[in-house]
Nucleic acid binder design. Sequence first.
DNA 1: TTTGTTTATCGTAATATTGCAATATAAAAA
DNA 2: TTTTTATATTGCAATATTACGATAAACAAA
Lengths: 107, 107
Amino acid sequence: MGASKSEFFSEQQNELASLFKAISHPARVAIIEYLLKVDSCICGDIVNELPLAQPTVSQHLKELKNVGIIKGNIEGTAICYCLNPETMKKLENYFSGISNELKSKCC
Amino acid sequence: MGASKSEFFSEQQNELASLFKAISHPARVAIIEYLLKVDSCICGDIVNELPLAQPTVSQHLKELKNVGIIKGNIEGTAICYCLNPETMKKLENYFSGISNELKSKCC
DNA sequence: TTTGTTTATCGTAATATTGCAATATAAAAA
DNA sequence: TTTTTATATTGCAATATTACGATAAACAAA
């Protein structure tokens, strides 16, 4: 074995897991933090900011884009990346929903 | 290589990535969902609920506990697990903080 | 002490992720 | 057209994760 048994879980559970997996790497957390600071930037800016090679940054951006955490707009030869507010709101709502239901006590 | 270059990122970035990694698997999302529904339960209840063997569930619970997403209290031979409200609040605050800063537009 | 119950750990096979050099692609500039 | 600039893709080695059978550990009850 070794493969995750994702087919046994709901679509929503798998989608949430995919979102969290996308931000489960410190480089991708750092990219989010940087995008929040500068509003938007191109891939090369992130390569200069992080201690990673260009193909590695490109790969991280692809994973963030695949799950909708960031958006990319073509601008000439460059691509302008920014955070996707809708996804951030979705994640905020997920945890606020849990927190609100958690008035109860532990065992 | 292959190992994540976590030593180049901040402690906070690594801690957030660890939290997200803990919930980046559909089984662990399902465990959170189940704990939210039943308030608290023992490991065996989760084994009955999920399509996974007991050692696998035990391993998933360990990962959730290591990062403080759940708490476990010994009750005789069993261990009673529940969600940790503080961690849920921390995650809610992380995303609401991002959402609030994101009034700006994309590129 | 022996038995039953519950959970954790070990060992291992299958699979997935990470990082980057090399290279390809695409569009603008010369 | 050729060159430059910016990003993506390929291929591969190193490492990490996932799942579970077998087994151990811890405790209560008989």
